[in-house]
């Protein structure tokens, strides 16, 4: 667990680095999430003060976007594409198998904290679907079998 002073110092650095941008809030939130894996609640007043906007406004922005997490995710994040082209390539059966294997539904994390399963609506891999992103790595042409293998690799 990060010392709260260390954390607020690091957030102050991030704020300092981005404050000169036109419209700095999204770059700031991305940088904080890249650093801590989520946007800690305690960061909100600090951001609000630096940008002279209300805490409610910062919170509103964080909750509007699917990307920003208010709590840490599992150690690995598996994003499976649910959009039309991947469905046409039988992505639903891949998703069903993944849920079954992990024993969780969308937006959930396995009880051991290993894997968070998230839907994504298109990764731009629509000509080689069903597609996935695992911790930032792209995977195409998944089958129910290969997604099981992928999960085994990730869990290891």
């Amino acid at each position: 667990m990060l010392d709260s002073h260390v954390q607020s110092d690091r957030i102050a650095e991030i704020l300092e680095a981005h404050i000169g941008l036109e419209g700095p809030l999204l770059p700031i939130l991305h940088a904080i999430q890249a650093e801590f894996g989520h946007v800690p609640e305690s960061a909100i007043p600090q951001i609000a003060a630096a940008l002279t906007i209300s805490k409610a406004e910062v919170h509103g922005v964080i909750s509007f976007y699917h990307d920003f997490r208010e709590r840490p995710a599992g150690r690995h994040v598996l994003k499976l594409c649910r959009a039309e082209a991947c469905q046409a390539a039988f992505g639903n059966s891949v998703a069903e198998r993944a849920k079954q294997k992990l024993g969780i539904d969308w937006h959930e994390t396995t009880p051991d904290g290993a894997v968070t399963l998230e839907p994504v609506f298109c990764l731009g891999l629509c000509a080689c679907g069903p597609a996935a992103m695992v911790d930032g790595r792209l995977v195409g042409m998944l089958t129910p079998k290969s997604v099981e293998k992928l999960i085994d690799e990730v869990e290891k």
């Binding site: 699917h66 990307d67 920003f68």
Partner: peptide, 10 residues
């Protein structure tokens, strides 16, 4: 110019 990144909202 600058590159900016969205946050997962269609």
């Amino acid at each position: 110019m600058e590159i900016r990144v969205g946050a997962g909202a269609y």
